[in-house]
Amino acid sequence: MPYMKLKIKQVLKSKFTWISLLAILLGCFYFWTKNYNSRYINPRITEARENIAVEKKNIKYYQKQLKKSNLTKTNRHKIELDLAENKSSIKEFKTLIKSIQTNKWQKAYQIIIKQEKYNLADAKRNNANKDDLLPLESNIKKLQYLARNNLPEENEHYSVKGGFF
């Protein structure tokens, strides 16, 4: 027993023990904070917030255009349609943010898939080649699979869990 006490005292007096213990604790703290913060960092949320800001600027612009008295009836109708579309887009982006934050993935994926299909149709209208369309189509298929299984989207830059082992 005295030999064991001697070894414990040697370990506790060693500077290497405290340095390695501190390094282990800092590593654990780093992964804990990364896991904790990864719930709030989602590129779709930041993108949606940026889109909301752009749509709000567009709404202000269209409202100024509507106040002009020299608009023709067709131009006024077109601006009103654009204004209504921007308002519905803002509502859609807010719904997307809320569904991601509350982990309602099926609802979020419906909105994302709708946006991706619009991007695909836009690319087809602009006569994009097949190599440019393939990533869009595969992304839609991946999102549909995730929506069916109610799984969060994960990639190497924004993982669901912050630390990998």
Rank of each mutant, 00 (worst) to 15 (best):
S88I: 07
S88A: 08
S89H: 13
I90T: 01
K91P: 08
T95A: 11
S99A: 12
I100F: 02
Q101L: 11
Q101P: 05
Q101S: 10
Q101G: 12
N103V: 10
K104M: 06
W105V: 05
Q106D: 05
Q106R: 13
Q106G: 03
K107L: 02
K107S: 00
A108Y: 03
A108N: 04
Y109L: 03
Y109E: 02
Q110N: 06
Q110V: 00
I111C: 01
I111T: 00
I113N: 03
I113Y: 03
E116K: 14
K117H: 06
K117D: 11
N119A: 15
A121H: 13
D122C: 09
D122W: 11
D122P: 07
A123K: 14
N126E: 13
N127V: 05
N127L: 09
N129G: 14
N129R: 14
D131M: 15
L133F: 04
P135R: 13
E137Y: 05
N139P: 05
N139I: 10
N139S: 12
I140M: 05
K141T: 00
K142W: 13
L143H: 02
Q144R: 05
Q144L: 08
Q144K: 06
Q144M: 08
L146S: 02
A147W: 08
R148A: 08
N149Y: 09
N150F: 09
P152I: 09
P152F: 11
E153Q: 10
E154F: 07
E156V: 13
E156T: 11
E156F: 11
H157F: 09
H157K: 12
